[in-house]
Design a protein around this nucleic acid. Structure first.
Length: 492
RNA sequence: GCGCCAGUAGCUCAGCUGGUAGAGCAGCUGACUCUUAAUCAGCGGGUCGUGGGUUCAAAUCCUACCUGGCGCACCA
């Protein structure tokens, strides 16, 4: 318990005083006729009529025998006008002396427009629906302290209306993604979040324990392997949008739990996935924002399809001038070092190429672009290119210098898949904690036969960041992971 | 994990090279019946993130720790 400060004490005294007067400070049901927004939008027809509104009292301007106040609800704000000669002495005294900023009220009154032109409600009577005991952050500057904003998101939402807007946009994005895929015949499924084998991506998992089975379980790091089992089972167009968990560092682009969309389309390939992704992102932007040109951190991003498609090797050549295609592993290493990279010993040719790409190319990929044909040794679930088995039919989509999506023509050769897993196991044995685990049941499924398919994974949070001009992933996650604090402020 | 920066009233912030804490908003008292960051007059409010140290004296200097931000690393 924290020490009670004077401001809280005063509010508790008002609470007691209200009860003394027979006013219940925690009301129940209140029937609204309109939202604040509706009153303002429909002023013409509502002028002079009675409305009932509810919301939080966010400002009070007292003028002796008349008082103005601001009432906020989910969609907006409206001014209240309270006159002593209309509400009566007792009610007026309650309004001006026993209410506080932050209290939740139901009001009934008459819609009118003030001399200065502001649409307002002249209050006839009001009900206290909830007495607020804690002082709110400042009305003008709001809540700036990012630590408090994330830990006490409810406060952030109360005083920073633009934050609420971000999460309304997020809701529209989720809805639009589902609408887009549903319309194309994709089936939405839910697969386990607790896995006995954490597969489908290169990442460290969280571990938890099931008591009755006395079994350690991993929180999922990807959706991939279960969704592909569904392809085996005959579901030809399938998707899941859900939370995944990776036991990694936290940054402006990484939260330990985040939302991933994965979809699989039987008999398609990665070219189909490119078509689908660019159309989906454009559709979602149109639905959520009404445009496919969005401003992100001062750059205008044009999400309108088609997006350019360029192979990884071509992209490297374009941004570094070096063509890695003909280089041997040793030559590639020297070329990378010539570009200023420091490389661990023993990296394969494919990994060296990927390092060069990440360091020299990624930061330049501001406008949406597809990067094609990733090296096979960093793509253990993707089908090899027929014309060059060192590379795969895999692409990543980049926007604003970061990866938005990852997709490939899915590997459906069970023998090849087993070899890839075995290569991953060798990496694990060599100390790479993020290398894939062997998944015998997944291999068994492939042995029954999985149709060739295109598969796609997209970071939903990152898309929301772009569409809401948010610099940090924490701005688009309501309750981001934070280290707990002893005073009990935290949520995690 | 490493580096840099920050933490002062409920909130937003000021406080120079050490001299014992200040403003605005919010709160309280009073005035005011069309204000809107209402206005005017007055009042109260602080373990200066935490613990050590230096000093006659520390919000200020040193140090360790806590929390956060940003960058790097890790990471798709």
């Amino acid at each position: 318990m924290e020490a009670e400060n004077e401001l809280i004490r005063v509010r508790k005294e008002k609470l007691a005083a209200l009860r003394q007067l027979g006013v219940e400070p925690y009301g129940g049901r209140f029937e609204r006729t309109h939202s604040t927004q509706e009153v303002i939008c429909n002023f013409e027809s509502l002028e002079g009529r009675e409305v009932a509104l509810a919301g939080r009292l966010m400002a009070v301007r007292e003028h002796g025998k008349a008082t103005f106040a601001d009432l906020h609800d989910q969609a907006g704000r409206i001014q209240l006008y309270v006159r002593l000669d209309r509400v009566g002495e007792a009610a007026y005294r309650i309004f001006t002396q026993l209410l506080d900023l932050g209290d939740i009220l139901g009001v009934r009154g008459t819609v009118f427009r003030t001399r200065r032109g502001e649409i307002s409600v002249e209050v006839g009577d009001f009900n206290l629906l909830c007495k607020s005991l804690r002082p709110l952050p400042e009305k003008w500057h709001g809540l700036k302290d990012v630590d408090l904003r994330y830990r006490q998101r409810y406060l952030d939402l109360i005083v920073n209306p633009e934050v609420r807007q971000v999460f309304f946009t997020r809701a529209k994005v989720l809805k639009a993604v589902r609408a887009f895929l549903d319309r194309r015949g994709f089936v939405e499924v839910e697969t386990p979040t607790m896995h006995t084998i954490a597969g489908g991506a290169a990442a460290r998992p969280f571990i938890t324990h099931h008591n009755a089975l006395d079994l350690d379980l991993y929180l999922r790091i990807a959706l991939e392997l279960h969704l592909k089992r569904l392809l085996v089972g005959g579901i030809e167009k399938v998707y899941e949008m859900g939370r995944i968990f990776r036991n990694e560092g936290i940054s402006t682009k990484h939260n330990p739990e985040f939302t991933m969309l994965e979809l699989y389309h039987a008999y398609a390939d990665y070219h189909d996935m490119m078509d689908l992704l660019e159309e989906m992102v454009a559709f979602v932007a149109q639905e959520a924002l009404g445009t496919t040109k969005v401003e992100y951190q001062g750059e205008v991003l044009d999400l309108t399809p088609p997006w350019p498609r360029i192979t990884m090797l071509e992209a490297i050549k374009k941004y570094t001038g070096v063509d890695f295609a003909p280089l041997s592993q040793e030559e590639a290493r020297r070329a990378a070092e010539g570009l200023g990279l420091e490389l661990e010993p023993g990296l394969s040719r494919g990994k060296i190429i990927n390092e060069v790409f990440e360091a020299a190319v990624e930061p330049h990929l501001i406008q949406p672009v597809f990067i094609l044909d990733y090296p096979v040794d960093i793509s253990p679930l993707a089908k090899k290119r027929e014309d060059n088995p060192e590379f795969t039919y895999r692409f990543e989509a980049f926007i604003a210098g970061r990866e938005l999506a990852n997709a490939f023509s899915e590997l459906n050769d069970p023998l090849d898949q087993r070899e890839r897993f075995e290569a991953q196991l060798r990496e694990r044995a060599a100390g790479n904690e993020e290398a894939h685990m062997m998944d015998e049941d997944f291999l068994r499924a492939l042995e029954y036969g999985m149709p060739p398919a295109g598969g796609l994974g997209m970071g939903v949070d990152r898309l929301v960041m772009i569409l809401t001009d948010s610099p940090s992933i924490r701005d688009v996650i309501l309750f981001p992971t934070m280290r707990p604090r002893e005073d009990g402020d935290s949520h995690k």
